[in-house]
Amino acid sequence: MVVAGHEAPDFELPQDHCLKFLSLDHPLPSQEEGEYPAAVKDKMIKLAAAWDCAKSAWNPQHVMKLDWDDLISSRLVEWLVSVKDEAGYLLKHGWIWRSQIPFLVQRTEYFDRVCGSCLIIRSDLADQTGPFLTHVEGTKLSPEEHRFAADDHYSLVPGSEIGSLLLNDSHQRYTAQFDYLGQRLATVPFNAAVCRIGHGNNAGRPFGTETTRMLLGRLRRTRLITPRLRKEFMLA
């Protein structure tokens, strides 16, 4: 695992040859076009550096980008080793954990729609390219292309710039990106990650207005955090 950041954590890192902390000092991207696009650009710079570091240090078979505040299941790596070698795996099933309510967690079957920490890519495909960079990464789209992106969250967007399969943040369009490359994107069959929200440092955009129906659905999917879940995801 490679952790990339501007500042080292304020705690002692484990001494493990499989863990590297990469300290970066690039200038933070301009917020002229908004805070969120700047955060995405910064994330892509860090991700590119981390991926280069991983390739030079090891011979990785897969790569997964993970936001600093999200968590993955302790079962995920063992499962990945045991399954057929697909081009990639999408995490559709997972949990949403609101920091304000630390003893409850919400199950979701649409994890990839709400969280960027949802994709595992086979390493030989990570650097393949296509029209994957949208307004999310700062590409300037025409009004018609913006409308297309707003109306269709899952297809490739006309006017997108060329980028790699790994270095983009359009996580709702990952299936279309794999289709473009002629590859199949499989699904991880269990709740494999936790998306942490509401802690005050989320860079992502809010989920939007919640209707009564959405609230009732969220309550129906809410569970108490069990000791097993706490252990599986190291929930503090």
Rank of each mutant, 00 (worst) to 15 (best):
M1G: 04
G5A: 11
H6M: 12
E12F: 10
L13E: 05
S23G: 09
S23F: 00
D25N: 15
D25I: 06
L28M: 10
E32T: 08
E32D: 11
P37E: 06
P37I: 03
A38G: 12
K41V: 01
K43E: 06
I45D: 09
A48T: 11
C53T: 14
C53A: 14
A54C: 14
K55Y: 06
A57I: 11
A57S: 14
L66Q: 08
I72Y: 07
S73W: 07
L76P: 03
V81P: 03
G88L: 02
G88F: 02
Y89G: 00
L91T: 00
K92E: 14
W95R: 03
W97S: 00
W97L: 07
Q100F: 08
L104A: 13
Q106A: 04
E109S: 14
E109Y: 09
R113F: 03
V114L: 15
G116I: 02
C118G: 06
C118P: 00
I120P: 04
I121P: 00
D124A: 08
L125N: 12
L125C: 13
Q128W: 12
Q128I: 04
T129W: 03
T134L: 01
T134Y: 02
E137G: 05
G138E: 04
G138P: 00
L141E: 02
L141M: 11
S142T: 13
P143E: 11
H146P: 00
H146C: 08
R147A: 10
R147L: 07
R147G: 04
F148S: 02
A149M: 09
A149E: 03
A150Q: 12
A150T: 09
D152K: 13
Y154E: 14
V157C: 02
E161M: 08
I162Q: 11
L166C: 05
L166K: 03
L167P: 07
Q172A: 10
R173T: 04
T175C: 07
Q177W: 03
D179H: 11
D179V: 01
D179I: 10
L181W: 05
G182M: 12
R184T: 13
R184N: 15
T187S: 15
V188M: 05
V188K: 04
P189K: 10
V194E: 01
V194W: 02
V194T: 00
V194M: 07
R196V: 12
I197R: 07
I197M: 02
G200F: 01
N201V: 06
N202T: 15
N202G: 09
N202M: 11
A203M: 14
A203K: 13
G204M: 05
R205P: 02
P206W: 11
P206L: 08
G208R: 06
G208K: 07
E210A: 09
T211L: 10
R213T: 13
M214P: 01
L215F: 15
L215V: 11
L216D: 08
L216E: 13
L219V: 13
R220C: 09
L224W: 15
L224F: 11
R228V: 14
R228H: 14
R230Y: 02
R230P: 00
K231C: 06
E232P: 08
E232V: 05
E232Y: 07
F233Q: 06
A236I: 06
